[in-house]
């Protein structure tokens, strides 16, 4: 039995970039990528790595320098704008939304490719708009004006608009920029739920490593060689490609915490830490920020953490003193 292909969009030998009078400026090249239905794919890269350029190119807004983008097997440049708009919808970084437009009116703009010349909404259109607003949890704002919404709510409205456009592929450019942590998490969870529940292929760009690692089903990682490594986030972590992609001086990937850390060339005082794993994790974080190195080997300074999570105690070996907070502990260490 043949396996059903899940790939909806793919690229072959794609080079994206800019062309001007001075010549060709490739930003990313040799891209052989594929986007699958039912998955949230994150395009991860540093600022200026070419995330938006790639997104604009595979979204058909910008022309590729080389290679081809295929939408369901058809070259994207051979698809006319109207048909493409029924297969692919976008949330862009332009944060210009007209304040006098109501949420309902903005979401209903998503029906643009389907409505008549005047844009009159049929009952079917209205049903789809309703479902889009329900799925994104913005029904209660329906009659509010865009200007009255918070950034997080506005982003949900823009996502609802793409749902109203009823496309199998959705691209979002930096959808969580400007958002605080709870809002970021909410948007990521919403997008993942949408991908899984409605079997859409969702691609978003982000420079937020932790968010991408935690939520992406698939990662497109822009590396230092101006191309892209793609795979499961955890695979890219373990084979070192992620660390390589973000490689900078004085920056090191912490494989335990899944984040990057600054490293300094200065010689550090080594401290051995013992105790409950959660307490150890946060103590370590404070010690490392203060410039100490936590080591599993025996050391002159040893800290033993006792007590429970609610009332932990830190015991320092060299003066045999117990501290109730990490702050007090650090004051003692720094005075040493």
């Amino acid at each position: 039995m043949m396996k059903e292909t899940r790939t909806i969009l793919n690229t072959t030998n794609l080079t994206v970039g800019y062309k001007d009078k001075k010549g060709v400026k490739p930003v990313l090249s040799n891209l052989n990528l594929s986007l699958e239905k039912g998955k949230l794919t994150c395009l991860l890269g540093t600022n200026g790595a070419g995330k938006s350029t790639l997104m604009r190119t595979i979204g058909g807004i910008q022309k590729p320098l080389e290679g081809e983008v295929f939408m369901q097997g058809k070259p994207i440049r051979s698809i006319d704008a109207k048909s493409l708009s029924k297969q692919l919808s976008l949330v862009l970084t332009d944060r210009i939304a007209p304040g006098n437009l109501t949420v309902y009116a903005l979401v209903s703009l998503g029906r643009f490719p389907y409505t008549s010349w005047l844009g009159t909404l049929s009952q079917k259109d209205k049903d789809i708009i309703f479902l889009a607003m329900e799925a994104t949890g913005i029904l209660e704002f329906a009659n509010k004006h865009i200007g009255e919404l918070s950034d997080g709510e506005r982003q949900k409205v823009m996502i609802a608009r793409t749902l109203a456009q009823d496309t199998e592929v959705i691209f979002l450019d930096e959808p969580t920029a400007h958002l605080d942590l709870p809002n970021r998490m909410e948007i990521f969870h919403l997008l993942r739920a949408l991908a899984v529940d409605s079997d859409k292929a969702i691609l978003l760009t982000t420079h937020e490593l932790d968010m991408a690692l935690a939520n992406a089903d698939h990662l497109w990682l822009i590396n230092q060689n101006q191309t892209i490594d793609s795979g499961l986030p955890e695979d890219l972590v373990l084979n070192g490609l992620l660390e390589e992609a973000f490689q900078r001086d004085q920056l090191q990937f912490d494989y335990e915490l899944g984040t990057f850390k600054r490293t300094s060339t200065q010689k550090k005082i080594k401290i051995k830490l013992e105790g409950d794993s959660i307490l150890k994790r946060w103590t370590r974080s404070a010690l490392e920020r203060a410039g100490y190195e936590v080591t599993p080997d025996a050391s002159d300074i040893e800290i033993r953490i006792s007590g429970n999570l609610k009332a932990p105690l830190w015991h320092l070996n060299y003066n045999d003193t117990t501290y109730k907070t990490i702050q007090e502990l650090l004051i003692q260490l720094n005075n040493q």
């Binding site: 807004i61 048909s83 493409l84 976008l90 007209p98 903005l106 703009l109 643009f112 844009g119």
Partner: peptide, 22 residues
């Protein structure tokens, strides 16, 4: 007759294009 087109342009040209407007 241009009302629908003008509405799409409210979101900017990139969005308008992505919604299939020439």
């Amino acid at each position: 007759f241009l009302s629908k087109t003008l509405n799409a342009l409210l979101l900017g040209e990139d969005y308008a294009q992505s919604m299939g407007l020439n």
